[in-house]
């Protein structure tokens, strides 16, 4: 399952470090009764946020808040364990939902982002 199809509650419980990122984006998901039912994609849509931007920021969230070696975490597939995920991406390199080919990044950067997502 990709991060965008995870429910907000699963994402927050697997990766508590995303909570401040959500709040920074103005999302009221932490503590929300709807969080177990709404996916990251639906939340982005409901708040009028670009999914790719949100995903990039979530991926870049500091991973120190969760237990290393917890391989049951559904977030592992999303590449959060990769220490490189902490690198902040330049605005132009942030992927949007459907235009992987038009991100204006060099090939190497694009595949890196593809791995993050």
């Amino acid at each position: 399952m990709t991060v965008s199809d995870m429910t907000m509650a699963d994402l927050m419980s697997a990766r508590p470090a995303v909570v401040p990122v959500l709040l920074r984006h103005g999302l009221a998901c932490p503590g929300c009764a709807m969080a177990p039912f709404m996916t990251v994609r639906e939340a982005a849509d409901a708040y009028g946020l670009e999914l790719g931007v949100l995903l990039a920021d979530l991926a870049a969230a500091d991973s120190s808040g969760s237990d290393a070696g917890d391989d049951q975490s559904p977030a592992s597939e999303g590449g959060f364990r990769n220490p490189r995920a902490r690198i902040a991406l330049p605005e132009a390199c942030r992927p949007s939902e459907s235009d992987d080919d038009r991100m204006g990044c060099a090939d190497g950067e694009r595949s890196f982002i593809g791995y993050l997502l």
Binding site: A28, C32, M34, A43, A46, Y47, G48
Partner: peptide, 21 residues
């Protein structure tokens, strides 16, 4: 059935209106 979950949360929490896209 809550068809627009976020819209209901926005009413409950007095969040800014949902952008209609």
């Amino acid at each position: 059935v809550i068809r627009k979950p976020h819209a209901l949360v926005a009413i409950a929490e007095d969040l800014p209106p949902v952008p209609d896209r």
